[in-house]
Every structure is written in C-alpha cells, then in structure tokens.
C-alpha cells in the first residue's frame, strides 16, 4: 500500500484507527447505563407486573393474564379518550398561541430577542404545582378574571363567554374553575414553552429571501405563508406538537387541581390505581396502553406530516 511505504509504520496506522473508532462508543456508555437502569429495567418490570395476578398482601405471581388489559380498557376508556381530547385541544391552542409568538420573537423582536426567550422559559423557575395552583386564583368565582370583569363593568362579557363555554360543554355550571375548560387552560399554559421553543428555533432559521421570492412570484403574504413558510416550519410544528401532546396526554396535575370528578384523566387513574387502590397490574396495563396509543399516534403523525427528511 502506498500509505504504508510512505509512513514506514504499516502496523501502527490501522491500530490507531481502530482505537479512535471505539471512542464514540465509549462515550455512549454512561448514557446507555442510565437508560438500562432507569428505562429498560422499569419497562420490563412494568410489563411483567401488568401480566401478573395477586394482591399486595399475598404477593403477585406471573400468570400471563392478558385479561387485565381488556378489563382496564373496557373500564377506563372514557378517561383515556378524555385525556386524548384534552391534550389534543391544548396542543392546538398552544400551536395557535405559540406560532405567532415564536414568529415575533424570531423575526420582529430585534434586540429584545434574548429577553423574550428568557420570559418564555421563566415559568420553569417556579414549580409546576404552584404555577397550576395560580390558575385557581385566576379562574375562581371571585378570582382575578371575575374581579377584572366586575371592576371594568364588563361582567356581561364574562357571562357571555361562560354561556358559550357551557354550550360546547367545556363548563357544566356557572363556574369556570373545576371544569374541562380550566383543565385545558392549565394544560395549554403549562406546555406552551414546549411548543414555542422548537417553533422558534425552526422559524429563526427560515431564510427570509424565500419569503421575498414567493412574493416576487405573485404570492400574497397569506399565500406565501401557506405555500412556503408553513411547509418549511413543519419540522418545528411536529416537534412542538409532540413535545406538548405526549406529556399533556399523561398529565394528571392539571386535572387534579383545576378539574372535577367529571374531568378525570388517565394519568389520575394510573396514579390512583398505583398509590391508593394498589391494583398494580391494572395500573401497569393502563400505562402500557397509553404508551402504545401515543407511539402509534406519533408514527402515523410523523408519516402524515411527511417531515422525516426535513427533521
């Protein structure tokens, strides 16, 4: 080989290459260990738990009891469906709020860009629980919203708003709090940063000359958005909706603090089965069902959006 005659060290070169090639794998080891201990092991134990029978006092035995899945599904499908609907609505709302916000920060904020980004992340400086509790003081019967309406003599607007919500079933009586509306508000608020950040990083990279080119080729601003900006931002939209929808579907804090017995979500059911009813197999089975639904959803969604090559 030409190389060996030139270097005069025919053996050293391949050995060094092999050692160099191993470095990336060595760097993976800590992460892989972490995943094995805290993801693979719990998953296997959860899977096996879901197929066992018995109770806490007398212990569990593996009986490959797939009936638990059928029972859990037939009993808790309303909560499961409700979780998906709430998470879906919240995701659409975060998208509707987050897209213009991300666009503004990326293209119109000038030197305030970093400051605005800090504001987007600022809620994370306080606890999830406290942030959610804050919505009780906003939506409560004598909360912030009601106070403002009263002081500004716009309570008729609030009443009208409530009538509208009642008509579509998002509140059940004249209370804003402890309703599907409140739960969705909480979910939307809590997961907004997860939508804004990926959208921002995508929109920030958008080449403004492409928008100019669309305008030059007879596209009005609305058409340029539909045919150029939106398709190019799909990777950001997909990332944002996944980061919002997946945790929102499994969330239970918002429903516990802002909902009622009529807004129970699947996360609450799993929580109760594990920690209060102590029916571990049902809880494990529900966890798996939720996971499978989400995985199926993600696969079809990413395929439909056709963004594999863009991500």
């Amino acid at each position: 080989m030409a190389v060996t005659t030139l270097t005069g060290a025919p053996v050293a070169a391949p050995r060094r290459a092999r050692r160099g090639a191993a470095v990336p794998y060595l760097l993976l080891v800590p992460g892989l260990l972490w995943l094995v201990v805290f993801f693979v092991v719990p998953m296997v134990s959860l899977a096996s738990q879901s197929l066992q029978t018995g109770d806490v006092d007398n212990g569990y035995t593996m009986t490959w009891n797939f009936a638990t899945y059928a029972d859990a599904l037939s009993t808790y499908w309303p909560q499961l469906l409700r979780s998906l609907i709430y998470a879906g609505i919240a995701t659409l709302l975060t998208l509707a709020l987050g897209y213009p916000l991300a666009w503004f920060i990326a293209h119109r904020s000038g030197r305030y860009k970093n400051f605005l980004l800090v504001l987007v992340i600022a809620p994370f400086f306080t606890s999830f629980l406290i942030r959610t509790l804050a919505w009780q003081t906003i939506l409560g019967d004598s909360g912030l919203l009601a106070q403002i309406a009263l002081r500004t003599h716009t309570d008729f607007l609030l009443t009208g708003f409530k009538e509208g919500l009642k008509a579509v079933g998002l509140i059940n009586n004249d209370q804003l709090l402890f309703s599907p509306f409140a739960v969705i508000c909480g979910l939307t608020y809590n997961f907004l940063p997860f939508m804004v950040l990926p959208l921002y990083s995508n929109l920030e990279r958008l080449d403004h000359r492409l928008v100019e080119a669309a305008g030059d080729l007879y596209a009005s601003p609305v058409q340029a958005f539909r045919r150029v900006i939106w398709p190019l931002s799909l990777p950001g939209v997909v990332a944002g909706t996944l980061l919002t929808f997946i945790p929102a579907a499994g969330d239970y804090i918002n429903s516990v603090l802002l909902g009622s017995t009529r807004t129970v979500m699947i996360g609450q059911v799993i929580d109760a089965q594990f920690l209060r009813v102590l029916d571990y197999p049902t809880a494990a089975a529900l966890s798996f069902i939720l996971m499978l639904i989400i995985v199926a959803f993600v696969i079809t969604y990413v395929r439909r959006a056709g963004t594999e090559e863009l991500v």
Binding site: D207, R209, L210, E212, A213, A214, G215, D216, L217, Y218, A219, S220, Q223, V228, L232
Partner: peptide
C-alpha cells in the same frame, strides 16, 4: 411585489 409583472433571479437563487 406580488402585483407586479416583474420577476427576479435572486443572488442566492432562493429556490424553495
């Protein structure tokens, strides 16, 4: 721009 019957070949091409 979109109302003008004028088209541009951009410096960086700006292909979609």
């Amino acid at each position: 721009p979109y109302q003008r019957n004028v088209n541009t070949v951009f410096q960086n091409y700006a292909l979609f």
